[in-house]
């Protein structure tokens, strides 16, 4: 455990050692603001809730989370420090988990900085704060899923751009799996089971359940297993890359 926290602290400090962290946080807050108030018609809807805010999160994360994830391993591969890190007396899974947690905590910090939106909606009306807490939880879990995908691709290559592009494409597939246009491709010819399997893989359908305030165990298990499976893949990829 202590080894994991050493890695987490080093990685988190790594985000803040360069302007990356500040750029990310500013862009994240700007985009959430634009999406919520401009595209999401926060005020015009006249509803005291944060649906307009949360609904855009999958699309926001599609680009921002791979940007956070891409450096996790690629940077080490490029500098050759993978060899240093993986010959320290810590198990490889500690490095995988530590790096993931650092990225997740960082996204968590960015998410916490959106709290003024929550305060605003409380000032304007009386929203169901339980639903909003669920929304934040769902958003954080979904970000974890995106991040685990990004970390895995980062482990594959020393090129951050390649890691970024592959992660965005994969995350995109996991978003659109639940969109009607994609599902329509399957309905009609594919068995019902396949259609529902594809739909159940979607980040969005699981996320929307939570955002509406319904914390279904299946949704939680879905995100948890996404994170675990992609991190296992991450560990395997890093191991294979050593030769």
């Amino acid at each position: 455990m202590s080894a994991i926290w050493s890695i987490v602290r080093r990685e988190l400090a790594g985000y803040f050692a360069t302007p990356v962290a500040y750029v990310f946080i500013v862009v994240f807050l700007l985009l959430t603001g634009i999406f919520t108030f401009y595209l999401g018609n926060f005020f015009q809807r006249g509803q005291a809730d944060l649906l307009a805010f949360f609904n855009f999160h999958p699309w926001l994360y599609l680009f921002l989370v791979p940007a956070i994830a891409m450096r996790l391993w690629s940077e080490e591969h490029k500098a050759g420090t993978t060899e240093l890190l993986l010959t320290l007396p810590l198990p490889a899974y500690a490095a995988v988990i530590g790096k993931f947690l650092a990225g997740w905590i960082f996204i968590g910090i960015a998410l916490l900085l959106t709290l003024p939106i929550w305060l605003t909606v409380n000032w304007l009306g009386s929203p169901d704060n339980g639903v909003i807490v669920a929304g934040y939880l769902g958003s954080f879990l979904m970000a974890g899923g995106f991040l685990a995908i990004g970390a895995c691709f980062s482990g594959m290559t020393s090129n951050q751009v390649i890691a970024f592009v592959l992660s965005v494409v994969t995350c995109f597939l996991f978003i659109v799996a639940g969109v009607p246009i994609v599902l329509d491709l399957f309905t009609g010819w594919a068995p019902e089971a396949l259609v529902s399997t594809v739909a159940s893989l979607s980040f969005v359908s699981h996320f929307q359940g939570i955002v509406k305030g319904v914390i279904d165990l299946r949704d939680l298990v879905y995100f948890a297993s996404m994170i675990v499976l992609w991190l296992i893949a991450n560990g395997i990829v890093v191991e294979l890359r050593k030769g």
Binding site: S2, A3, S6, R10, G14, G80, T81, L84, L88, P89
Partner: peptide, 28 residues
Amino acid sequence: LGYLPEGAPLYPDMTVAGFLGFIAEVRR
């Protein structure tokens, strides 16, 4: 075991003190 890999790879963004502190921490 102590190991200096080929080319002495290091974390460029860390300070010398921060880096050595990290190594000491991981090595308990």
